[in-house]
């Protein structure tokens, strides 16, 4: 079977640590490649499975258990981030 038509540039399968933006861009690249329909079966299968993995990764990154708000505090000559207790709002 012939490999690699021009649009068959599917990136390597490691998707563990991809930032959301990259994962989503890759996912949409794969969708377009598949929709174009010039991938061979084997490549299409690999692309599809990677697409599914990327889509899961993206979805997971959109969900977090808890909101993180921190505040920079001067410590010595530099700054460190500490959990922010809340606005000392008076009005």
């Amino acid at each position: 079977m012939d490999e690699g038509s021009p649009s068959a540039k599917i990136p390597p399968a490691s998707t563990d640590v991809l930032p959301f933006e990259t994962a989503l861009t890759r996912l949409e690249g794969i969708v377009q490649a598949l929709e174009k329909g010039d991938l061979e079966l084997e490549a299409a299968l690999a692309a599809f499975e990677q697409g599914v993995a990327l889509s899961r990764l993206c979805a997971a990154q959109l969900e977090v258990a808890e909101r993180r708000i921190e505040v920079l505090v001067r410590e010595g000559t530099g700054f460190v981030a500490r959990p922010f207790a809340g606005s000392e709002d008076t009005d």
Partner: peptide
């Protein structure tokens, strides 16, 4: 809420 916020 996914993205942490850092106040200076």
């Amino acid at each position: 809420p996914v993205t942490p916020l850092l106040l200076a």
